[in-house]
């Protein structure tokens, strides 16, 4: 009987722990959304931030975050795609490949602050690019590359070898077999991974503080010439993102409504990340269904 009682107690403790984890998440989400959502308004989402006065918005930061995310994806996706194809299709079984794999593993576990500092050293200082969107996008690329590469490799590997043989037996080159047969079939997995990665990039701040910078210069949304310093598209302007903004106002913010602004901004950040999560699932599932011709 003692053993049975012990079993019962242990199993119930496990249940309680699992329930606690759910409660922690609900508490976190609830706290952010309840304290943050009331601050979200059209004005908040579109107007410029204030340094000393209250009533500032997050318009510029929100734009910067999105722009930076797009740039990061534009730079990191092709490289990860090539690297992922290499690892899943071309990599020979030798020491070079194991070094490559180790390098990618190390890069993925590097603290993002170190990646940011490297970006600062090389791009901001050495290449004299200054605090700029481009420096930030490159730093985020370093941060995103290993994850995306691994995701693409795994998605490609999940496609059965039968499909590779089908292409090869028709006299297609390996490259065309991979890009025209294997890649389309791996697409649902790849897109899910890209979108989830995008969520992480969107919320990243440590790698950006010393690369994209901590100031949101006033930009003129009427000017879309990327070579103009005031243009939103200008690659060389410093660009504080939403995540960096939250960090900044909590560390050194002096505006009177700092906590309200951070609550609102945090809520926006969380909502965006949630949307990315949901979006990743929907798009992954529907692509998969389309692919396998199951309705």
């Amino acid at each position: 009987m003692k053993i049975k009682l012990q079993n019962k107690i242990a199993i119930n403790i496990i249940r309680i722990i699992a329930a606690l984890v759910v409660v922690i998440l609900l508490f976190l989400l609830g706290d952010i959304l309840i304290s943050g959502v009331p601050h979200i308004s059209w004005h908040f989402l579109t107007s410029a931030s204030q340094s000393f006065a209250s009533g500032g918005g997050i318009g510029v930061q929100l734009f910067n975050s999105i722009y930076l995310l797009l740039l990061t994806l534009i730079i990191s996706f092709p490289i990860s795609l090539g690297a992922g194809i290499f690892l899943s299709e071309y990599a020979p079984k030798n020491i070079f490949t194991s070094i490559v794999r180790m390098a990618i593993e190390v890069l993925s576990s590097l603290p993002s602050v170190v990646v940011g500092l490297f970006g600062f050293l090389l791009f901001v200082v050495q290449f004299q690019m200054g605090f700029s969107i481009l420096s930030g996008a490159i730093a985020l690329t370093f941060f995103n590359l290993p994850l995306l590469t691994r995701n693409i490799e795994e998605s490609l590997r999940a496609v059965p070898d039968l499909q590779r043989e089908a292409g090869m037996a028709l006299g297609l080159s390996k490259w065309r077999t991979v890009t025209r047969v294997i890649l389309p079939e791996a697409l649902p997995g790849i897109i899910t991974g890209v979108v989830l990665g995008a969520g992480r990039v969107f919320g990243e701040a440590a790698a950006l503080i010393y690369t994209a910078g901590q100031s949101a210069t006033n930009i003129d949304f009427g000017n879309w010439n990327p070579f103009n310093a005031a243009s939103p598209l200008n690659l060389m302007r410093p660009a504080e993102t939403l995540a960096v903004h939250i960090w900044k106002i909590n560390s050194e913010g002096v505006m009177p409504d700092a906590s309200a602004v951070s609550a609102g901004a945090s809520a926006v950040l969380i909502i965006v990340v949630l949307l990315f999560n949901i979006f990743a699932r929907i798009i992954g599932n529907s692509l998969y269904r389309k692919l396998t011709a199951t309705k």
Partner: peptide, 30 residues
């Protein structure tokens, strides 16, 4: 096909070399 395959090799090896280069430079610079 032989040209396509050469192209594929060049592209993928370049991408992977780029990543290795990034990791190495992070270590060297820091």
């Amino acid at each position: 096909e032989t040209r396509q395959d050469l192209l594929g090799k060049v592209i993928t090896y370049t991408c992977i070399a780029l990543i290795v280069l990034v990791v190495l430079s992070i270590f060297v610079f820091v």
